[in-house]
């Protein structure tokens, strides 16, 4: 099948960008979306043009590197699917496909479709850990944890840090990501001693990075490839409120 692509091209962080049009020809429905871009890039290289820069690594939906907004939907709109796992059979022959990078002030574009998501790392650095050093930890089974709690923590921990939630949110809010990180640790007994500080520090860092605020529109949950639940945002708000009260 053949498609018309409109792709955001931007030389570097400082230059302005624009949408450029390319033809993607002889695309096979079994290709992944990124493989389709590979094919287009090969043609660009053959013509001596610069290939389209986009991020990817594992290409199996787990590393969270790939990040494209396709026709206005982060990761392209297949439920629970990253763009590297999105296949061309979901597109129609002759369709026009608009490809843009994540758009958020906290995720500046570095080149074309590549953005800098370092803000997420800095949020985790602010408190997204349990302070134990290597060694000297008690036997793993000395602390039984109910399966329900452990499963819920795992639900939150499944976040791959891709940033689609920010890209989809009309306010470019990072609440879903941050709440997943906070909830994973705040749910577990090991995370209790630092519970209040963790949520306060991570939320403070999130605000400092320039993300927007959550007005509970729910788009984040809908595009999240790991289907992280909005309930974690409620849980984080609760933890945050409790931390505020205790610190007063």
């Amino acid at each position: 099948m053949n498609l018309t692509l409109k792709v955001w091209r931007q030389k570097d962080a400082k230059s302005p960008g624009r949408l450029a049009e390319y033809a993607a020809t002889n695309i096979i429905p079994g290709m992944s979306f990124l493989e389709m871009l590979d094919v287009v890039n090969e043609e660009l290289i053959a013509r001596g043009e610069e290939p389209i820069a986009f991020d990817s690594d594992c290409r199996e939906g787990i590393c969270g590197t790939c990040a494209l907004v396709i026709n206005g939907i982060a990761h392209g709109g297949q439920r629970g699917t990253t763009v590297c796992q999105l296949h061309m059979r979901h597109f129609r022959d002759g369709q026009t496909v608009i490809i843009e990078p994540w758009r958020a002030r906290a995720f500046p574009v570095l080149k074309d479709l590549v953005t800098d998501r370092g803000a997420f790392d800095r949020i985790v650095q602010a408190g997204g850990f349990i302070s134990v050093n290597t060694g000297g930890t008690p036997d793993a089974n000395s602390l039984p944890i109910s399966k329900a709690i452990s499963d819920q923590a795992m639900d939150a921990a499944a976040c791959i840090g891709c940033g689609a939630c920010v890209a989809a949110c009309k306010n470019a809010s990072a609440m879903l990501f941050v709440s997943a990180k906070v909830s994973h640790l705040n749910l577990l007994p090991q995370g209790q001693p630092e519970k209040d500080g963790r949520v306060s520090n991570m939320v403070r860092q999130m605000d400092a990075e320039g993300f927007g605020n959550c007005t509970v529109t729910g788009s984040c949950e809908a595009v999240c490839p790991k289907e992280i639940s909005l309930d974690f945002i409620a849980r984080m708000n609760r933890d945050y409120g409790a931390a505020l009260l205790k610190n007063k």
Binding site: K6, L19, R105, A106, S173
Partner: peptide
């Protein structure tokens, strides 16, 4: 704040889930 959080708007934007 929310408007500032996205300095460049999407060229194409579909509404997902948001009422």
């Amino acid at each position: 704040e929310n408007r500032r959080a996205r300095s460049i708007p999407y060229a194409e934007c579909q509404v997902v889930a948001a009422s």
